[in-house]
Amino acid sequence: MKELYLLESSTGNPHGEDWQEEVYQKIKAMKDLYLLDLNAVHQKVISKLQQHVSLQLPENERVEKLKALKYMLERYMQFVQISKRGIRANHKDKLGTYESQIIIILSADRRLRATH
């Protein structure tokens, strides 16, 4: 899997004019690498939640975990689709953490697909 290793690159002066463009370019690269896969996992989670509701099963720990994963995936998909004008200084701080978490989720999904 391709990884950006965003933490290794320099982002220059955080108070300078170019930090926003650099952060935007990194987020855009994350979008290109991960958005389709994030969306696919998100659709699977939604499908599982809908199955649970249609079968009228009682809520359990698994459903709660699926709901939490759905929320997390939505947050990451929003993050990688942010507009350049929407970028704030705290986005720069989230780059490495978000990418690491995205990689963990997508890797887990690939392992699950390999076993089924």
Results as ranks from 00 to 15, higher is better:
Arg111Val: 15
Ser83Met: 07
Gln78Asp: 15
Leu66Pro: 04
Ser83Ala: 05
Ile87Met: 00
Glu74Gly: 12
Phe79Ala: 04
Ala89Glu: 10
Arg88Lys: 02
Ile82Met: 05
Ile87Ala: 00
Gln101Arg: 06
His91Trp: 01
Asn90Val: 02
Ile104Ala: 10
Tyr71Glu: 15
Ser100Arg: 14
Lys94Glu: 11
Ile105Ala: 00
Lys67Asn: 08
Ile87Val: 01
Glu64Val: 04
Asp109Pro: 03
Arg75Trp: 15
Ile104Thr: 15
Glu64Thr: 13
Ala68Ser: 06
Glu99Arg: 02
Asp109Leu: 08
Lys65Asn: 12
Ala108Asn: 12
Ile105Glu: 01
Ser100Cys: 06
Gln78Val: 14
Gln78Glu: 09
Ile104Gln: 14
Arg75His: 15
His91Pro: 01
Val63Lys: 01
Lys92His: 10
Arg75Phe: 08
Val63Trp: 00
Tyr98Lys: 07
Phe79Trp: 09
Gly96Asp: 08
Met72Val: 09
Asp93Tyr: 03
Lys92Leu: 15
Gly86Val: 00
Leu69Asp: 11
Leu112Cys: 12
Lys67Arg: 07
His91Cys: 04
Asp93Trp: 03
Arg88Val: 00
Arg111Ile: 11
Lys65Glu: 15
Leu69Asn: 06
Ala68Asn: 14
Leu106Asn: 01
Leu95Cys: 09
Leu112Asn: 09
Arg111Cys: 09
Tyr71Val: 11
Ala114Gly: 05
Lys92Met: 12
Arg88Met: 02
Ile102Trp: 05
Met72Ala: 13
Lys70Trp: 15
Ile105Met: 01
Tyr76Thr: 08
Ser100Val: 13
Leu106Ala: 02
Asn90Gly: 06
Ser83Cys: 06
Arg88Gly: 01
Tyr71Ile: 10
Ala108Val: 14
Phe79Met: 08
Arg88Ile: 01
Leu73Arg: 06
Leu66Asn: 05
Ile102Val: 08
Asp109Thr: 04
Ala108Tyr: 10
Glu99Ser: 03
Ser100Lys: 06
Lys65Leu: 14
Leu106Tyr: 00
Ala89Thr: 06
Gly96Trp: 13
Tyr76Trp: 15
Lys70Asn: 10
Phe79Gln: 06
Phe79Asn: 03
Asp93Thr: 03
Ile105Pro: 00
Asp109Cys: 04
Ile104Glu: 10
Glu64Gln: 12
Leu66Ile: 09
Gln78Pro: 08
Asn90Cys: 07
Glu99Pro: 01
Ala68Asp: 07
Glu99Cys: 04
Ser107Lys: 15
His91Phe: 00
Lys67Ala: 14
Val80Lys: 06
Arg113Trp: 02
Ile103Asp: 12
Tyr76Asp: 08
Tyr98Asn: 11
Glu64Ala: 11
Glu99Leu: 01
Phe79Lys: 07
Thr97Glu: 09
Met77Phe: 11
Lys94Cys: 14
His91Tyr: 00
Ser107Leu: 10
Lys65Thr: 05
Glu74Asn: 12
Tyr71Gln: 14
Leu95Tyr: 09
Gly86Thr: 00
Arg111Pro: 04
Ile103Met: 11
Ser107Asp: 14
Lys92Ala: 12
Ile87Pro: 00
Gln78Ile: 13
Met72Lys: 15
Ala108Cys: 09
Ala114Phe: 01
Ile102Arg: 09
Met72Phe: 10
Arg110Ser: 05
Lys94Phe: 11
Leu95Asn: 11
Lys70Ile: 15
Tyr71Pro: 12
Tyr71His: 13
Gln81Lys: 14
Tyr76Val: 07
Gln101Leu: 04
Lys84Ile: 06
Arg88His: 03
Ile82Asp: 02
Lys84Trp: 01
